[in-house]
Design a protein around this nucleic acid. Structure first.
Lengths: 344, 344
DNA sequence: ATGAAAGCGCTAACAA
DNA sequence: TTGTTAGCGCTTTCAT
């Protein structure tokens, strides 16, 4: 096995307690002794066994991350935001992407109770009722990402879906469109709900009546965007513009439009949400809403680490909404936009 | 704290050893006693503390996964393959995506020595020299993914880059192209090297001389594809077809072609490698090589778990090449292809 | 400033 | 079949 504290103690001619103190900068150790121990530890390439450390100290230096299966497009970016910070602060990341058949709640609780993690970052845009319970039950610090927590009793970081949807809808309205259709996200998904709310409110504020026939449901996949478009455009009352609740559905819309020989934006304007890489490649480039995903991950773990270190009160609710930004392409009807480079 | 084995033992009126035995189905326990213990454990929602378990038993039920930063496009899929299997077999996944400033070797060794993981899946297409050392040093089972291990002394699963590149190059040759250019992947990356090798061999086999001027370097990014294309097409001797070593570079090629009013495939044919989602959306659809990424992850973890459980000899080298497949779009000049649906 | 010793929760000999 | 006990490698009182 690896060299352990006992061995270091032996070689340094001190007790294991002293080694522990020297290594943790904790308790008093004569400077000379400390140096010697550190020296020997380095020579032997000694690293304290984190498992043993966890058992005693109840610190695992591990963060649990639970992501839904829906985040495909963002998976990498979220992890990137989290992982980089974790690395800097010497933490490990334990990941669980909750596939369909998996019980997210169970995974979470297991994470929590197993003592494997010091805290959890949970992204669960589809869980509602159980969420409150979870928040109560959870013994360890937890940060919610884009989750539906109506009660204000947790720590959460959200993309400001409402604002983004509102802004982009007003942008469409600014173009003079009145019949604006929407392809919604999955039912029960709070990102989707908020985007719809922003859409509705923007119409209301501008005295445009919402027509039920112009609202079709989708599920954030390109496929559902494809069929959503067909449904919308096969009605007698066709929309002048379509707001797809995410870019992947907009991709489906483009494909359907191409099949139907309908031109974007001449025949119908299209906008999306998310600013995924692909949206830059569509012709015309998709007008969409940028969401700061890496930042979401970074903020989440930074705050979580503070909770863990008791630098903030983990029981104090705290929520932050990350602002979105409008990305203008040609799909909304704008002709004079400064297209940022298509390179990532 | 959570209820522990001692407490369960107390409530069941037995010793902790018996509880341990009953829970692990290990050693003999009277059926009645066992039932009672299990019953009480369930009532108290008792889960053995995995940390403590690890400390004693040296099984952590955790798999370490180390991915390079380059795999952006595949990140999700690889994890998906691994995570699903891990979940089924009750394992945890500890992830580390090695960002640029990070030392992949160090991360690996730390994973290994920390006792946090039972085994490691490593994807390191850029590491060469250190890899052999690592393989020697590593005390725990390790599976290599698409890594450059020339010595046949490890367990590895690789995409058959050579075969894919060879096939798609021959496909171009079949179209009658003779001046075929290539935009290469990053230097020192073995995926890139193998793809180049397949390309060269296909040309050689068909008695086509490789022209150095038609080989330009890239780094797997769209940007490098963009400039690679420009370099290739600004020469007096222009290629009739271009093989971009991955799809992202092909995306850059499309963009550059559009800017230059060069038509694909009329003016120049283009093919890629990877079959990323975006490749379906390009117009004309990109002809490319499909790589089974999810499967790569699945195979890796399945084999790793076998090594861990000693169902296979972890010291026995074992390598598997996963076959690729040709995906015909219109970019190579084919007109009569059965385009599979663009939906994922 | 340092050491001895008691755990952390569990598994695995060894005894009974 | 069951219990006792000795660790696993470490942190942390409590003495010294």
């Amino acid at each position: 096995m690896e060299v352990n504290i006992k061995e270091i103690a032996r070689r340094a001619g001190v007790s294991i307690a002293t080694v522990s103190r020297a290594l943790n900068n904790n308790g008093s150790v004569r400077e000379e002794t400390r140096r010697k121990i550190l020296q020997i530890a380095k020579e032997n390439n000694y690293k304290p066994n984190p498992i043993a450390r966890s058992l005693t100290g109840k610190k695992t230096n591990t963060i649990g991350v639970i992501l839904p299966e829906l985040v495909d497009e963002f998976f990498t970016d979220i992890i990137r935001g989290i992982d980089e910070e974790a690395y800097q602060t010497d933490h490990y990341v334990m990941i669980s992407s909750s596939h369909s058949q998996r019980n997210i709640v169970q995974t979470l609780l297991e994470f929590m109770s197993s003592g494997r993690v010091d805290g959890v970052i949970l992204m669960a845009p589809k869980i509602r009722k159980e969420l409150s319970e979870l928040i109560q039950k959870s013994k360890r610090p937890m940060v919610l990402l884009n989750s539906c927590n109506s009660n204000n009793n947790s720590v959460c970081f959200n993309i400001n879906n409402y604002q983004g949807a509102f802004t982009i809808t007003e942008h469409l309205i600014g173009h003079g469109y009145k019949n604006i259709g929407m392809i919604q996200g999955p039912e029960g998904n709070c990102d989707a709900d908020e985007r719809f709310r922003g859409f509705s409110d923007a119409l209301l504020k501008n005295n445009i009546t919402i027509q039920d026939s112009l609202i079709v449901s989708g599920d954030f996949t390109a496929k559902s965007g494809y069929y959503g478009f067909i449904r919308l455009m096969s009605q007698s009352q066709k929309p002048e513009a379509i707001f797809a609740a995410n870019d992947m559905m907009a991709v489906g819309v483009y494909e359907a439009a191409r099949s139907s020989n309908i031109n974007i934006p001449q025949d119908v304007a299209v906008v999306g949400f998310d600013n995924i890489y692909m949206s830059r490649l569509l012709t015309p480039r998709l007008t969409t809403v940028h969401v700061p995903i890496v930042e979401l991950g970074t903020k989440a773990i930074r705050y979580l680490l503070k909770m863990i270190k008791n630098e903030v009160d983990a029981n104090l609710p705290y929520c932050e909404e990350l602002s979105t930004g409008l990305v203008i392409g040609g799909s909304c009807g704008c002709t004079n936009f400064s297209a940022p480079t298509f390179f990532k």
